[in-house]
């Protein structure tokens, strides 16, 4: 679906004198894409450009037909770009369910005033959101933890809750930032299964930033490798992984 296509064209980002992204071109369309590269290559910066936290010096970002550069971050989030963060950002004092409900914030048709006066329509919408959030937890097997406080659940759960929150925003594109980092093997499997199920159901374009090349090669249909702000390789996982320049980037130059 073209409206679910995310395209970056000639993105240049520099912080101070530091060039972080250098003429980056990327297209993500349907399925699961991997964005990989050594530390500091600029992967999270790409996400920040897409979701509007960082303005590039030049270049364009389009989702479907709509340009995103220069648009306010919260508008981009409401427009259809869901995202998670390297360390999960959940509200510790709220329950898991409430944290997921945050994602449905923009789907309300009633405003805060209606809420204040306790209108029936608002209460119906609130109920619908609660149910949707609960359902959103089920692919991750977290429905039983729905009433736990976010501060008391383990990291793996936090990461999955954050993904559930991003998914419930009903996005066209889902940007995941190192979702498997710090997770044990069984949790990673759970996460990947849930993710694949969700992607299939909703026909989402999903991008994953990951360090674990092995994992990414296994589950992604497409890989893009970023190194010092430039795309050095792109394509099917098998060919990318065995690409010489990629290996060099990850392991460094081998002497002789």
């Amino acid at each position: 679906m073209t409206s679910h296509t995310l395209a970056l064209r000639d993105i240049n980002v520099a912080f101070g004198g530091n060039k972080v992204l250098d003429g980056v071109n990327l297209t993500f369309s349907g399925g699961l894409h991997g964005l990989v590269g050594p530390n500091g290559a600029g992967k999270t910066t790409c996400y920040n450009v897409i979701s509007g936290y960082v303005t590039p010096q030049s270049g364009s970002v389009t989702l479907g037909d709509t340009p995103l550069v220069g648009v306010a971050a919260h508008e981009i989030g409401a427009f259809g770009v869901g995202r998670t963060f390297q360390t999960p950002k959940l509200v510790p004092s709220m329950t898991v369910l409430e944290n997921v409900m945050l994602g449905a914030n923009r789907t309300y048709t009633t405003g805060h005033v209606a809420e204040f006066f306790g209108s029936k329509r608002f209460r119906a919408e609130e109920r619908r959101v609660r149910e949707l959030a609960y359902l959103g937890l089920q692919p991750f097997g977290l429905a039983d933890s729905a009433r736990d406080k976010a501060s008391s659940v383990p990291l793996a759960v936090q990461k999955m809750v954050e993904i559930a929150r991003a998914v419930i925003t009903d996005p066209r594109v889902l940007l995941l930032d190192e979702p498997a980092a710090g997770l044990g093997a069984s949790d990673v499997d759970k996460l990947v299964n849930a993710l694949q199920q969700i992607i299939k159901e909703r026909n989402l374009t999903t991008v994953i930033i990951e360090h674990d090349l092995h994992l990414v090669a296994k589950i992604c249909t497409n890989l893009s490798v970023l190194h010092y702000g430039r795309i050095i390789a792109e394509g099917e996982p098998r060919s990318v992984v065995s690409d010489e320049t990629v290996i060099e980037a990850y392991l460094g130059r081998r002497k002789g």
Binding site: L102, N105, H112, F116
Partner: peptide, 30 residues
Amino acid sequence: RVLDGRLGRTMRAVNNIEIAAPSVGISPPK
């Protein structure tokens, strides 16, 4: 009333996870 419901959650998001709030369509300045 405000604290329990949607507005309360939104405010808490602005307070606790301001960075992540725009990703769910919440505008902290607003």
